[in-house]
Amino acid sequence: MKKIISLLMAILMIATLSLTLTSCSYKDDVRSVKEAGKLVVGVTIYKPMDYIDDETGEWTGFDAELAKMFAKELGVNCQLVIIDWNNKVAELNSKQIDLIWNGMTADEKLGKQIDFSVSYAKNAQVAVVKKNSTLTKDGIKNATVAVENGSAGETVARTDIGATKLVERSDGQVGALSEVLAGTADVAIIDITMAQSVVGKEDYSDLMILEGVSYGDEIFAVGLRKDSNLKAKLDAFLKAKYADGTITDLAAKYEVGINEDALK
């Protein structure tokens, strides 16, 4: 028994040690990206930030276009990889991807795990209901609220709204929408950018955005590994692209609200 315990202790110590080593090691991401010849960007399909154009079959979107430009500036290829949003930190820290660039809300909690670039866009959360719904802003608190697990919408639903009946979907914000569509939830709290791009179309034509209801001022940023030396390059890139009007043009094209204060 003693032997087993000491063996387990040894394994734990080795594991801890290697984790410590990981967090201490300086991350020369610029070099490793250049050596690999490609910048791997973790995304999900998320209109209008990152999505695949039906006609060309190529990645496009506000974030996708910026990511491609950034890779070009580094002199490497840009590879957009679909990830499971729940695993974004694991994907980043296990070096499967170099950046998370996917309309990601930069909040304090996530900031403890990873670094953020300068914020380049802003977002808010809105409520989506069925077209014939009589739900009001005050009623949301007691309604069944569908959100994406781990999303900004979930934070809003819990803190700003104080909702008690939560349905948490792990398969994206559309998962939350399908709950409303199926009548298993009364309202979904999702990103305004997402809501504007799908609600009222195709299978979601029965849905609408509840007017005059908006929560949380979120800022969007690109996610990087802690202490990554890519951050300086990325920040400079974003600011330059704002200064020359590129970001402003893209924002108009994709209907995204940019974070002018941060980019100045």
Binding site: A15, S18, L19, L21, T22, S25, N87, A90, E91, N93, S94, K95, Q96
Partner: peptide, 13 residues
């Protein structure tokens, strides 16, 4: 299997 090697800084698949 997929993430641990990278997270422990052992190797990247």
């Amino acid at each position: 299997i997929f993430y641990l090697p990278g997270l422990l800084n052992l190797f990247v698949w």
